[in-house]
Amino acid sequence: MAKGSIYSICISPERGQLKKEVVEAVVTQYGIENDGHAGEWGRQITCLNWGSVLKANMENNLQVGPGEFAENILIEGLDLSHMVVGDRLKMGDDVILEVYQIGKEDHPSVVTRTLGITLLPYEGLFCKVVQGGTLKKGDPVKSFLFHN
């Protein structure tokens, strides 16, 4: 089990938009309240490593902040690259997410059109909610790997 923390939580009312940072969020069985990706499907919440954003900023001379890669949760201090489908993240006191998909089809998204690069299709963890609760910036995140 490895540990990190929530660097930011971001939402947008509709899919296909950049997200705005919020201080706190309620996670239901369908995803984050008031986020366009919440629903009855597997890609309810997207997680990305804050270190990946910093690296992309440095390599591409950008100043991208929370939500600008269209992610819901930026995680700091935890290497997400070892996670596979079925692994879980425990966030805060109650929230448990299960990795449903890693990466996705890369298409000309608002992120690519705005920044010229994208991260979610390659590094994003698309998760479904196992257990809901309330999350806030700075909450601890623990990974549970169920593979060898």
Results as ranks from 00 to 15, higher is better:
residue 98 E to G: 01
residue 98 E to P: 02
residue 86 G to K: 09
residue 97 L to H: 10
residue 80 L to S: 09
residue 107 H to Q: 12
residue 79 D to A: 03
residue 91 M to V: 14
residue 105 E to G: 09
residue 114 T to A: 08
residue 75 I to P: 07
residue 102 I to W: 02
residue 113 R to Q: 11
residue 89 L to H: 01
residue 92 G to Q: 08
residue 112 T to Q: 14
residue 111 V to N: 00
residue 113 R to A: 04
residue 80 L to Q: 01
residue 115 L to M: 07
residue 102 I to R: 12
residue 110 V to M: 13
residue 110 V to N: 10
residue 120 L to K: 02
residue 104 K to T: 04
residue 94 D to M: 11
residue 104 K to N: 09
residue 88 R to L: 07
residue 88 R to P: 04
residue 95 V to C: 10
residue 115 L to G: 03
residue 98 E to W: 07
residue 75 I to C: 05
residue 109 S to H: 06
residue 100 Y to V: 14
residue 85 V to H: 08
residue 104 K to F: 10
residue 121 P to Q: 06
residue 94 D to E: 15
residue 83 M to K: 05
residue 117 I to S: 03
residue 86 G to I: 01
residue 93 D to M: 12
residue 109 S to L: 05
residue 87 D to M: 08
residue 106 D to M: 12
residue 92 G to P: 05
residue 94 D to I: 07
residue 116 G to R: 06
residue 113 R to W: 07
residue 82 H to D: 15
residue 106 D to I: 06
residue 114 T to M: 08
residue 105 E to Y: 11
residue 84 V to W: 10
residue 119 L to V: 00
residue 92 G to V: 12
residue 105 E to R: 10
residue 99 V to G: 01
residue 96 I to G: 01
residue 81 S to W: 00
residue 82 H to N: 15
residue 79 D to K: 06
residue 87 D to P: 05
residue 76 E to R: 13
residue 84 V to C: 11
residue 113 R to M: 11
residue 93 D to C: 08
residue 121 P to L: 11
residue 83 M to R: 01
residue 98 E to T: 12
residue 102 I to T: 04
residue 92 G to N: 02
residue 77 G to W: 00
residue 119 L to N: 08
residue 95 V to L: 10
residue 87 D to Q: 09
residue 93 D to H: 13
residue 85 V to Q: 08
residue 99 V to P: 01
residue 94 D to F: 12
residue 77 G to N: 07
residue 101 Q to N: 08
residue 104 K to Q: 06
residue 92 G to R: 07
